[in-house]
Amino acid sequence: MFLVGSFFLFAAFLITTCIFVIFSKNPVNSVLFLVLAFLNSTFLFILIGAEFVGIILAIVYIGAVAILFLFVVMMLDIQITTLMFNIKRYIPLALLFAGIILAEIIYLTVFKTSKENLDTFIRSKNNTEQIGDVLYTEYFIDFQLSGIVLLLAMIGAIVLTHVYRPTIKRQNIESQNSTTAQDRVKLVKINSGEGIKDD
């Protein structure tokens, strides 16, 4: 009973914050509500025993992605605009989506009551060990490929946003390495009373 109550609390918060993300006028508020939505889904994941994914969601989304959004929102000068809310144009779409939700709910609650219960499973290992067993053996190639995807995204983001300024003086490593001692120093023999003659 506690589980169901907590589920409904967090689910209601999640849906409310998702709605606020869309309908906030200020993009900074939208980003902060997005953080709250991710936090609520973290709670939901921990509630059903998927602790590892929940904590990863908190670290990756709240700690990295949402803060990246926040930095970009603060960097850009965005004027506060309202939604172009032309309700007549979207009524068929809204009815379609509402029909889909209604059909799913009726199908799930009336025709297909799920028998799965959380208490029936006996777990010999904890969640992190279970994921680690599969992730580093069966999904090893996929794991490496996702690392390559992240590397490509990093390189792509740097290449896209990098600004080349030709006025900045930089180190020219090639010319530094190719110089010899004769280019920079020369030995001058100074005779008495003559001084150094310029070439």
Binding site: I56, V60, L68, V72, N127, I131, S146, M154, A157, L160
Partner: peptide, 22 residues
């Protein structure tokens, strides 16, 4: 749950590229 981790990876990459384009 393993697939969920992969989705998370792709979402992070997509957010980085999208914000760079922005």
């Amino acid at each position: 749950q393993v697939f969920s981790i992969f989705i998370l990876t792709i979402a992070a990459a997509e957010a980085a590229i999208g914000l760079a384009i922005l």
